[in-house]
Design a protein around this nucleic acid. Structure first.
Lengths: 191, 191
DNA sequence: CATCTAATTAGATAATAGTCTAATTAGATG
DNA sequence: CATCTAATTAGACTATTATCTAATTAGATG
């Protein structure tokens, strides 16, 4: 799916009358005059809108004598609707691989005594490690900055970087230098 | 979901740079300057786009010192993406009810000798009857108009209306007065 | 062939939207 | 306090778009 088609699809749906037309057509095919009548628009306006809907491919037409009936192509419409979410959130690796890899990453970066050998530079690995580190904090409890620093130092001396990563990746939230764990749904996910 | 919000959501996605911004953010939060740099745009343009994305609710932000980090609200984004398809194709009755009712409708409108007592005026019932009538036709075979008329007359004298309904509701396709059954996925569905 | 109807095209108008430069605000830091 | 940085606002410019009226095309029908 190229960017252009996707943009066009959404641009096409970005008009109230075209949405109204689709809701009409979802109840069954209609011809231009009928649509114009129901929406209180003139025929050329319908021609204009139908051209856009047709160009995106979500509506097609059939002629019956002199009259053109318009239909929604439901499959295409649905696949376009799903295209952007899929594009944004398709993971390059599937979830099984991820959970399998997580332990491997922890094994590689966490020493036998529990300290962090090194902060991973690869994003995916870093997220895994951050999740591991944050395990020892309590949900709902408020931590002053000093306490957070001490906590992180048990794993790694560079508490500033790691504290910052906690915030950036949305594991924690800071207000007035008081830190608090975010609910897990807010955490950044990998992939 | 009111129409206005839905239109706004799609209007917001109807710009290539905003789509690009979302793909960037899907990989992790970013601040304005970073986005501007990656897209080759100036800061005020980013402000403009982020305001639109924020107003629709699919992006939110967190401040860290002087820098604002932007995040996609994945849940909201997904629910907006699904809103229009759901709106168009939610059936007022669930499918079980439909299949249960179908036989009842046939019983009411089809006489003991198999003829159609009356053409239903209610859309849902009409569709059910049309599907019933079309059962006797062969898939892939081409029917001249005269043959279609004779076939329909076995059920009801008003073959013109019923033939027209077959076309309008997309059970059949006509070209040069030759009729042919459409594949079942193209048939109009109820609800 | 004359007429009617549905759709389209052409062209005008007014509103909206994307982008920029320049100026301003708001915090942070030395 | 002076400075630096990120973001925003204001305002201008251009391009796009939604809508209309008037004119035209394409078929169908008497």
């Amino acid at each position: 799916m190229q960017l252009n088609r996707l943009v066009n699809f959404h641009k096409t749906l970005g008009d109230p009358n075209r949405i109204r037309i689709l809701t009409l057509l979802a109840a069954g095919p209609l011809h231009g005059q009928a649509i114009a009548g129901k929406l209180g628009l003139k025929a050329p306006t319908i021609t204009h809108h139908m051209a856009k809907l047709r160009d995106t491919g979500i509506v097609y037409q059939r002629k019956d004598k002199n009259t053109i009936y318009y239909y929604i192509d439901e499959k295409k419409f649905r696949s376009y609707s799903e295209a952007l979410p899929n594009m944004l959130y398709q993971s390059d690796y599937n979830k099984e691989d991820d959970t399998l890899k997580a332990q491997a990453v922890i094994n590689n970066f966490i020493a036998a005594d529990g300290t962090l050998k090194q902060i991973p530079s690869q994003r995916k690995k870093k997220i895994i490690i951050l999740k591991h580190l944050i395990n020892g904090l309590e949900r709902g409890r408020k931590y002053p900055e000093k306490e957070i620093n001490e906590y992180i130092k048990k794993f790694h001396p560079d508490f500033a970087t790691i504290r910052r990563e906690f915030i950036i990746n949305h594991f924690m939230y800071r207000e007035n230098n008081i830190y608090e764990l975010n609910p897990e749904e807010m955490w950044v996910t990998i992939g």
